[in-house]
């Protein structure tokens, strides 16, 4: 319950925090595209460098970022192993019975690890660590606004997302409290068979659902009291404006993408 730091806003006053959230969403999309453009050692090195630069300019402690990566260590290890054992190539390193490991497989595994790491670090630096959830949904709502033409209730989806994000920490706290209360009455969640453990969850889940419904009810009333009636004709308290630094950031990422394409062309070492 304590290790959900990945994707949590970290307050600071870096340039990344001050960029327009809409631009940050666009930048994140472009950055993801860039990670998939990488094909050889040079471009992956540039990619890794860019992730480090992002962390440095975001002013977020390196320790926190690395702690967040820990959560996906298993997925990375799994991907790496699959790549090591199942990539066929021309330069074998180990050949023993059914195990064939090629140099290409090792390169492939290394590239995948770098790609996944940078993907996570890059998007969390550009979005979740440096943008409050409210700003993020605001940005998404505005970027997706054109879909309204297709009768998709963009505002309502954004509002639902905002509320869901808002209540995650509240519900986590609530769960911890209820667990403590039931433990104080001798409930045991950690021993016994699978069935008895599943049964032990009932005393947590029922109070949790009851309180979630109660909260939802109260929230709905509070919103109605403030005359909330959906997105139509609703004005905003904070109006987002693009500033020159947003376009500078866009230019930087375009140049970065171009750099990766150029480095791909140099064709040094193994190419994916």
């Amino acid at each position: 319950m304590k290790s959900i730091t990945l994707g949590q806003f970290y307050p600071s006053d870096s340039i990344l925090h001050r960029l327009d959230p809409r631009m940050k969403v666009i930048l994140a999309v472009l950055y993801i595209v860039a990670t998939f453009l990488c094909k050889n050692v040079l471009s992956f090195a540039l990619l890794l460098l860019s992730a480090i630069v992002l962390i440095l300019i975001s002013k977020i402690p390196m320790k926190l970022v690395l702690g967040g990566i820990k959560a996906i260590l298993f997925i990375m290890a799994f991907t790496a192993l699959i790549n090591v054992f199942f990539t066929k190539g021309e330069t074998p390193i180990v050949e023993w019975r059914f195990i064939h490991i090629y140099a290409e497989g090792l390169w492939q595994a290394l590239f995948m690890i770098v790609r996944i790491t940078v993907l996570i670090v890059g998007t969390s630096m550009l979005l979740t660590y440096t943008t409050t959830p409210i700003m993020l949904t605001d940005a998404l709502e505005q970027l997706l606004a054109p879909l309204r033409v297709l009768h998709i209730p963009v505002h309502e989806f954004a509002m639902m997302m905002t509320i869901a994000l808002r209540f995650i920490p509240t519900l986590v706290e609530e769960t911890n409290k209820i667990m403590s209360a039931q433990k104080a009455r001798g409930a045991d969640f950690t021993s016994g068979s699978l069935i008895s453990r599943a049964k032990a969850l009932i005393p947590i889940l029922i109070p949790l659902f009851v309180s979630a419904f109660r909260r939802a009810d109260e929230l709905a009333t509070a919103m109605e009291c403030r005359c909330y009636h959906g997105g139509a004709g609703r004005t905003r308290m904070t109006i987002l404006h693009y500033s020159p630094k947003d376009f500078v950031a866009l230019a930087v990422i375009v140049v970065f993408g171009a750099g990766i394409i150029v480095l791909n062309r140099l064709g040094i070492g193994y190419t994916m």
């Binding site: 409290k177 209820i178 109070p207």
Partner: peptide, 20 residues
Amino acid sequence: IKQVRFRVGLVMQYPEYQLF
């Protein structure tokens, strides 16, 4: 430690939210 919890009964804050 469970035995200790039976000997020292704790009623948490707003305990009515633990009823199920």
